[in-house]
Design a protein around this nucleic acid. Structure first.
Lengths: 120, 120
DNA sequence: GACACATATTCCCATATGGGAATATATTTC
DNA sequence: GAAATATATTCCCATATGGGAATATGTGTC
């Protein structure tokens, strides 16, 4: 087997930086393909291909308006990613607290040894 | 250009489902490679290769203990992912509220038309 | 040092990628 | 229906992938 398809799930779809940019841009409001091309300075076929991937995993929605296609981010599709990362949140705040506590401990020790020196 | 390397950033590293499983497993506590092999039912070389990718992007830390290598998840490295997904959180709660409001509106309308009928 | 054990690396391969260039499709306008 | 505009698709290609199999490296034990 090779690497999983970009269209296999949101995790793979979102691994591509340009697709993340597109999602951010389309989160502000509905946009035409041409607007994405201009705003993100990408080639039009490139944008269409990225949009296709995003559409296939449900990360964007489309509707037609005349010759224009209006895309928008479907934020709900990002939830699974958010929830997965959230399971680690407690761990890193815990880790940060430990770092903080150690720093404070060191400060205390420094102060203490200073006082000791001054006594002598 | 082809697809970005799995080692280019946490987004790419985490796109692979087995690597996510490994991160979850190593979040509980420090583990030997052999334990991962057994717990996740993967081939040993496969695990070593995944661990290498995770190590290169800082998602895991290692220390040696005799012939054993002890790996653990570095939760801080997941923060960027969490923060990126978080920017969409407001949008999806907003979206959910709208859905809820519409449902409630429909309920009201249903009730109203029922009363109308009963009048007649 | 010979051996066993734990882990890492290498080689091979089918597969999907993203970009570029060219072209196809769909829609409006005249 | 021809021309113009907006978007999508196709083809080509260099590149990295993950799995499997085999092998290499490192460490403890006798």
């Amino acid at each position: 087997m090779a690497r999983a398809a970009t269209t296999s799930d949101p995790f793979n779809a979102v691994a591509e930086p340009r697709r993340r940019e597109i999602l951010e841009y389309l989160a502000e409001s509905e946009r035409e393909v041409g607007q994405i091309v201009v705003a993100l300075r990408l080639e039009q076929p490139s944008v269409s291909k990225h949009l296709r991937v995003l559409r296939e995993v449900g990360l964007v929605r489309v509707r037609r308006n005349g010759r224009h296609m209006l895309y928008r981010t479907n934020p709900q599709a990002i939830r699974p990613l958010h929830e997965w990362t959230q399971t680690f949140e407690k761990l890193w705040t815990h880790q940060l607290n430990r770092i903080k506590e150690r720093a404070e401990q060191k400060e205390l020790e420094k102060l203490y040894s200073k006082e000791e020196k001054e006594k002598q």
